[in-house]
Design a binder for these strands. Structure first.
Length: 270
DNA sequence: ACCCTCCTGTCA
DNA sequence: TGACAGGAGGGT
């Protein structure tokens, strides 16, 4: 599930469910999830769940009224899922990698491919990613142009770099470039100011619309209170090889770029 | 700036 | 059986 809109959706859905609850125990079932030592979690309070780039960020305070505490960033990678179950519910065990037992319920971390990661931090500053959030109001197209600078990467690859903009992945990179009318093969540095503007505008339009639709969900297994997005119904080019371009009806082209599928309309994207 | 790899599952 | 899957860190 995990590009910016999906992670935003997870955080928004999870926050009201777990905020204010006390941790009874954290059990890690997949040892490879444990990089370094995990802090003791019992007795801590969940104060908030937010998004940081593509990661779900949990804040735990030490007591009900205390502000200091620790942060946990969960990266879902390709197949991670965070599922809330109340205490009465029996949970699926297949691919269960970790379980937070909270008062009156559990937060379960499932991850088929086991690429997901848990990372603990002692301060909020440490959690902050290097890249800029594309939805942050402080970002404008001039700044985007400055960030792109003289990069000779193609623009698709550049958009996937998490040390520049955070949150874009393979689906939304293709979608954004289609909406912006920019070819994924263009050298990033070759974009002009007008294209920086349309690129940023397309980025925000696509991401906001995807968030409104709770993201994109493929292979919609019946979730136990997980999420099921609907943005897959609005995808213009991604996964639509040989289907007509929604703008000009030319067939959508798929090709491999940096070992990943890119979809585009060769007519509309220059 | 690229290719490979981590891991498991599904589809043609 | 091989290609492919929403990600990213490591090596060259």
């Amino acid at each position: 599930m995990p590009e910016l809109p999906e992670v935003e959706t997870v955080a928004r859905q999870l926050a009201p469910l777990v905020r204010g609850r006390t941790v009874v125990a954290l059990r890690v079932l997949d040892p490879s999830l444990k990089h370094g030592r995990f802090p003791r979690m019992a007795g801590r309070h969940v104060t908030d769940v937010t998004r940081s780039g593509k990661r779900v960020l949990f804040h735990f305070s030490r007591g009900p009224g205390r502000n200091e505490g620790i942060w946990l960033a969960v990266h879902l990678r390709m197949t991670g899922r965070l599922i809330w179950v109340d205490e009465a519910r029996r949970s699926e065990l297949a691919h269960l990698r970790a379980r937070f037992r909270l008062d009156r319920g559990s937060l379960l971390f499932y991850d088929t491919r086991r690429f997901g990661t848990f990372q603990f931090y002692q301060s909020f500053e440490e959690t902050e990613p290097e890249g800029v959030d594309p939805l942050s109001p402080g970002l404008n197209s001039r700044e985007l142009g400055r960030m792109i600078g003289k990069s000779n990467q193609n623009i698709k690859a550049w958009l996937l770099r998490q040390d520049r903009l955070v949150g874009l992945g393979n689906i939304y990179a293709s979608e954004i470039l289609f909406v912006a009318g920019i070819s994924p093969l263009r050298e990033a540095a070759s974009l002009n100011a007008a294209e920086h503007r349309s690129l940023l505008r397309a980025t925000r339009r696509v991401l906001r619309r995807a968030i409104k639709n709770c993201g994109t969900t493929f292979s919609d297994f019946q979730d136990t209170r997980g999420l099921t997005g609907s943005y897959q119904n609005y995808l213009t080019v991604y996964g639509r090889e040989r289907e007509p371009c929604p703008r000009c009806s030319a067939p959508v082209v798929r090709f491999v770029q940096q070992q990943r599928s890119t979809y585009h309309c060769a007519q509309c994207q220059k």
